[in-house]
Amino acid sequence: MSDIRKFNKSMSIFILILIVPYLVYGAVSMYTDEYKSKVTPGVYESIQKCREGNINSQTIIFTDSAGAQLYNVNDSTSNGFFVINGTRAYGLVGQYLLINELVRNHPDEVKGNTIYLVTIPSVFMDNLDQVYTFNYFIKPFYNEQYIPYLEDKVKTHIESFPMQWASQLPLVKTTNWSVDYSNAKSFFKIDEYYISEFSLIYLNRLKELADEFGFEFVIKAPFMRNDKKEVSQEKMKQQIREHNLDDIFRHYFEDMKYIPDSVFVDRDHFDTEKYKPELNSLKL
């Protein structure tokens, strides 16, 4: 055998040895759904809970991770709430898809109830442009089940993500592998709050959903750091007025509760050892 053929043979064997285990793992993990407990498990748990959860409370709460700190999400029903623990990584679009999932699977239980979204204001600035969007939104939601609920603008945006086409491949979907999204926005330094284009679209769609299924939809803020008082709320308030969102944002800013910066471990999460909020401290 000539040298080049030997080389090609070795390369082919190497690539097979390298890739086949990943392919087998991906296929098995997809088949058994095992990946749902390993890759962004919280998202898949939330989807599952929205589909099949037993709603035994009149208070249904969707949260981001900051909001989730106010509720005992591991034992949510015993507290008298039905809580879907969420993340800012999928933004308002992801929250819409989850609420939509819940109400379509439980139309009778949600009718006449109130669904709260407990989330920090900077979440509304997200436009599916976070570093975690690939893993937390595109992988679990950009599939045939949820694409019908996505606006064309959202689809176009997602298709601009590098390697989004690979997001549903077993090899990618079943691992934490993610693209480095260089255009990701950082919200560590914020001068003012505002509502992004996608958030506006999906806030309106949430209003429509509430009308269609006969539930009340209200947005509340979790506890925030004292230094966030410095962030201007004017633009967001103006957008709320202009887009007739006052009813779902009623008392959102007025009820905001600020606590000392010293109990926070980062911009949005307090240290649960240092600070233990009382149950239903938001008075929902």
């Binding site: 190497f14 390298l18 390697m163 592998w177 993610s178 693209v179 480095d180 260089s182 255009n183």
Partner: peptide, 18 residues
């Protein structure tokens, strides 16, 4: 070693627009 390095690239690499 080849497999170790290739697996490190797959598992720990950043893929995107770099």
């Amino acid at each position: 070693l080849y497999l170790a390095v290739a697996n490190c690239i797959i598992l720990f690499g950043q893929f995107g627009q770099n």
